[in-house]
Amino acid sequence: MPFLSSPLWLAGFFSLFFFAWGIFLPFWALWLEGEGLTAGQIGLVLGAGLLLRCFASLLIVPRVKNESQLLPAIRYLCFFTLACFALFLFLQGFVLLALGTLLANFVISPLMPLGDALAAKWVSQIRLDYGKVRLWGSVSFIISSSILGGLITRFDHSIILYAMLASLLALVLMSWFKPATLPQDSLQQTNVSVPLWQVLKQPSVVRFMMLTSCIQGSHAAYYSFSSIYWKSVGYSETTIGYLWGFSVLAEVGLMAIASKWFGRWRASQLFMLAGVGVAVRWSMLAFTSELSLVIVAQALHAITFAAAQIAAIRYISEEAPPQFAIQLQALYSAIALGLVTAVLTWLSGYLYPSWQGQVFWLMAVLALPVFWLARRRQV
């Protein structure tokens, strides 16, 4: 079996996973539409899939009892994800397509927290530069979503499934390469998995979950309604696309320099910085739709998302009890990135028709608990 350096292995995993994710997330609704599902059916399936992704992280990730099992778990889930999407070559009709999409969400979603758990382990074990490795995932997301947009225009919706299968096949093949350094179990770990409720009894963990939920959840209105809002104030679809792409480029830029600029910062300091970004970014979008200021707000994605993501990995890898690392990654993915964001998306959807752009004030308010929680040195 070929060997790769551990950073190169992880960069390859993030690149190929987010290449596939850049196909699935933006375009799967179009594939379902091409297969004959109505808008109402698609909304029902995708909404249920979002909730299922939360539960999948809570059910599957904690079953990895120690860090030496991370690589096998990732490899098998990559294979099952490919097999799951291969089923769509044979499925037809609303019921079967809905069940297949729910199964796909359930299988693919734990790959993100498992990959981050492996990264967190290598941060402490081999001093991995997380930002420089993770940025390749963001770059791949931009590339795949851009390429697929052109391919769908040239071909039909079927190219979405074929591209998904090709990218997942590449991911499966890459995952079976052997990294030069295998993740080693922490001395404090045992073969007995710590229950999630026991992890949540730790005060520092509760603060961590509240911090990350406020920061990541503050993106809910942006993810769901910023494009609709910008179009309503006169921006073209092309401009909106550039604004989204610029925000991801800003994220990539910060991850590239994070170790140099923020290498000595504690997780609590990075969370405080992210809180400032939350307050400033969403206040700007609520206050104005002037393009130059919107561009500045989009640049702050580097702070509101990337800095917070780096802070979360730093806390899990360096400051939290080692025996809780995998469970913390599952909770972070399921609650902060999943459940809380889903609830705030629903709330934003309820308020947006009457509030319009003012809904971003609600997101800006989430900075207040961040300031209060991050000043405590335990997280």
Rank of each mutant, 00 (worst) to 15 (best):
P2S: 13
S5K: 15
L16C: 09
F24L: 13
W28E: 02
E35G: 03
A39W: 14
V45N: 02
V45M: 07
V45T: 12
V45P: 00
A48R: 10
G49M: 07
L51Y: 10
L52A: 06
R53V: 05
F55R: 06
S57D: 09
R63E: 14
V64K: 04
N66P: 03
N66A: 13
N66G: 10
E67T: 12
S68K: 04
L71P: 01
P72L: 10
C84H: 09
F85E: 02
A86I: 13
F90R: 11
Q92P: 04
L96V: 12
A98M: 10
N105C: 12
N105H: 10
P110I: 08
P110Y: 05
L111Q: 03
G115A: 10
G115T: 06
L118Y: 05
A119Q: 02
Q125I: 05
Q125D: 08
Q125P: 01
G131P: 00
S138Y: 06
S140N: 10
I142Q: 09
I142F: 07
I142V: 14
I143Q: 07
L148F: 11
L151T: 14
S158W: 05
I160Y: 00
A163T: 07
A163W: 00
M164G: 03
A166I: 12
L169N: 10
S175A: 12
W176M: 10
K178M: 15
P183R: 02
Q188A: 15
T190D: 07
Q198F: 11
K201S: 13
Q202E: 13
V205G: 01
T212L: 02
C214K: 02
Q216P: 03
A221Q: 01
F225V: 07
S226P: 03
I228F: 11
W230R: 08
E237Q: 14
E237H: 12
T239D: 10
Y242L: 15
Y242D: 08
V248D: 00
V252N: 06
V252C: 06
M255C: 09
S259C: 10
W265T: 09
L270T: 05
M272H: 07
V280K: 08
V280F: 03
A286G: 06
T288G: 04
E290S: 14
L291D: 08
S292R: 12
S292Q: 14
S292E: 15
V296H: 11
A297M: 04
A297K: 00
Q298E: 12
A299Q: 09
A302S: 12
T304P: 00
T304S: 07
F305C: 01
A308Q: 06
A311G: 08
Y315K: 08
I316W: 00
E318T: 15
P322A: 15
Q323Y: 12
A330Q: 06
A334I: 07
T341E: 06
L344Q: 02
T345Q: 14
S348C: 09
S348V: 04
Y350P: 02
S354E: 15
S354W: 13
G357P: 01
V359Q: 02
W361Q: 06
M363Q: 04
A364F: 01
L366E: 00
L366S: 00
V370L: 03
V370K: 00
L373V: 07
R375S: 10
